[in-house]
Design a protein around this nucleic acid. Structure first.
Lengths: 252, 252
DNA sequence: TGTACATCAGTGAACGCGCGTTCACTGATGTAC
DNA sequence: TGTACATCAGTGAACGCGCGTTCACTGATGTAC
């Protein structure tokens, strides 16, 4: 069996030549696989084609990934982490995709985070499709993807938590108080997040973060998957407008 | 070549036996193909497997669809039309998925339309993935899909148009006036729609409809594609809450 | 420092599979007179 | 109403292709003494 460390470990001075070669080739295999996603999609990802591009024989890949699905899983985890890190860094730097400094404050952070998500998606459309597109039939994402997948929503919740006046913002403009079932789900989720070491996020904030999060990814998916063709394409102006509207909706 | 009429024509009394058989088998092929989408996804859709299930030899399908891509196109058009009709009917009837009559008015219509979209998607998850999921690599949707694809957004725009006070609602809560580029795109789109025979929809309304539309499909996609696992699942309560919030956002 | 053994990476052949599409064909259905 | 011909539906064999995965193997790298 091949452990997660094989997939994650970066090259390191204290490694043997064998270990260094292994880490490097593992990365090269994933890089080539990502390149192939672009032309064939997740379904068409072929171990044989990857091996061919790397000048290896296809059976050699089984030294690195025990099956095609494990390679897919590694790509999915990489994609979530890449997007998550990009968003976290953008929020921390308070800097947009285009280099524009957007005035501080939670509303500015919100805009910056949205732009970074869109920017990342446009830079890596096939990795985006891999994680936010239709599921690959017959493939079930293992537990290990859950953590990386939550980085973006958690980052969004963080923006809302740090917003002035967030604590008392139980009721948003139009929806009134949360319903009973939703309150329970949100509280359970807040507890789970607190147990993971990120306390201080109220359930109502999580609900608003989820609304913002779904809206944002709805827009990005529509743009990337071609639903805007013939209407709001290019989507830049629409995106900026919608981001501003959503900021107001979630109380920023 | 096989024309679109072959794909669309329903059985009819004035047809010859041959024509009736052809219409019926065309439908059966599509039905079986839809069933297979569920297990294999769009990429895995196989002419041979469809033929096998129908007790035919694979080459016989070429009498009905000139290639696998043409069959896919027919399925996509069917799916758009099925969803579009469901939403239009729900709005006209003012009745929700669950049979609840939601009080009249634009806000009630909005909720009913949203529930119907979600309901249809949950009833036909694989057809939903076909039209709103990641694009099938190597497949380019032909022009013929554009009309059916626009039925839902047009229906949403219709709700907003008929809302009291819609005409003067140029500025929504948080975003202020539309930017220049967005105003132009919206105006062009409004003109295109008017030319198609559905006049009276202002550009600002189209922008709001698009915001609502992306939010709605973002939620439905997240639910169907598994992004809510471990948080707002089941998504019913969250969905209802978000729909109410969005109604306010778009001025209903 | 040098040797003996264990571990690992990569090879090449093979297995068994399913796919889309073409083509010459047979037999049934439709049409024109 | 009956016959002659044209059109169409479905068959079965074949082409050429690529895939994931297994397995016994060779040679290089690492480790323990």
């Amino acid at each position: 069996m091949i452990s997660m460390e094989d997939v994650m470990t970066p090259p390191n001075a204290s490694m043997t030549a064998r270990e260094r070669a292994r880490a490097e080739l593992t990365r090269e295999i994933k890089d080539e696989a990502k390149r192939q996603l672009a032309t064939a999609g997740a379904d068409g990802l072929s171990l044989r084609a990857v091996a061919r591009s790397l000048g290896m024989v296809s059976s050699a890949l089984y030294r690195y990934f025990p099956s095609r699905d494990d390679l897919l899983t590694a790509l999915i985890i990489d994609a979530y982490n890449s997007l998550g890190a990009a968003v976290e860094e953008a929020i921390a730097a308070g800097c947009g995709d285009d280099g524009n400094v957007t005035g501080g404050g939670a509303r500015g952070q919100w805009a910056v985070a949205c732009r970074r998500v869109r920017g990342w998606a446009r830079e890596h459309p096939h990795e985006y499709a891999l994680i936010y597109g239709s599921p690959v039939p017959g493939y079930r994402a293992p537990e290990a993807t859950i953590g990386p997948a939550s980085r973006v929503p958690v980052a969004f919740a963080g923006i809302l938590r740090d917003a002035p006046g967030a604590v008392s913002a139980g009721a948003v403009s139009g929806g009134g108080q949360l319903g009973g079932a939703l309150t329970e789900q949100a509280a359970a989720l807040a507890a789970a997040i607190a147990a993971d070491g990120l306390p201080g996020v109220g359930g109502d904030i999580l609900v608003r973060a989820a609304i913002a999060w779904t809206q944002l990814f709805g827009m990005v998916s529509f743009e990337l998957f071609g639903q805007f063709v013939g209407s709001f394409e290019p989507a830049d102006a629409f995106f900026e407008h919608a981001v501003a509207e959503m900021a107001s909706l979630v109380g920023l």
